[in-house]
């Protein structure tokens, strides 16, 4: 189902720069959908800080590699609601594949691998969060059999 030669695993320290670049690209892409998604003035530095946190284990992160190059990543966090039977939910907050590596099913593969990883941690549902106007994300998750589950409404304080 997936192309051979694509490796998916947790990111390593030496991949910080490459991961930071993908994180920055993810936020630049999503920026246009809603003013509340506007990115900080120094996206390069901040993306490096975030990448470092991800590598050190903040949330769950996986990277996809082709020929030892990081070409995509996925990040998720586990949220728990004690009142719900569902309990822990794994929420995918970021996915990005480098344009050079697209149309090979890498994003789908990242979601599958993330689901497996979260499953091992007792998660029975996975969700995805993205700007309401991002039709590409909407189509992507619909194709992977995700359904609308919660809505987030926003206003300025």
């Amino acid at each position: 189902m997936y192309e051979p030669g694509i490796l998916v695993r947790k990111p390593r320290e030496e991949e910080l720069d490459q991961l930071a670049d993908l994180i920055k690209r993810f936020y630049i892409f999503n920026e246009e959908f809603d003013p509340a998604w506007s990115i900080v003035a120094d996206p390069d530095n901040t993306a490096r800080i975030v990448a470092k946190e991800y590598i050190e284990g903040a949330g769950e992160t996986l990277v996809a590699l082709i020929d030892s190059q990081v070409v995509g990543y996925i990040h998720a966090e586990i949220r728990e609601n004690k009142m719900l039977e569902a309990g822990k939910i794994g929420v995918i907050t970021e996915v990005y594949v480098h344009p050079q590596a697209r149309r090979r099913g890498i994003a789908s593969r990242l979601v599958e691998e993330m689901q497996a990883l979260l499953g091992e941690k007792g998660v029975r549902h996975i969700a995805a969060e993205f700007p309401a106007q991002n039709i590409v994300a909407k189509e992507f998750y619909s194709k992977l059999k995700f359904r609308p589950y919660a809505s987030i409404y926003l206003r300025e304080v």
Binding site: R25, I28, F29, E32, H98, P99, Q100, R102, I135, V136
Partner: peptide, 12 residues
């Protein structure tokens, strides 16, 4: 080109 700065915007 996949490395054009506006590539992700073109997607939409």
């Amino acid at each position: 080109h996949p490395d054009r700065p506006d590539i992700d915007k073109l997607m939409i």
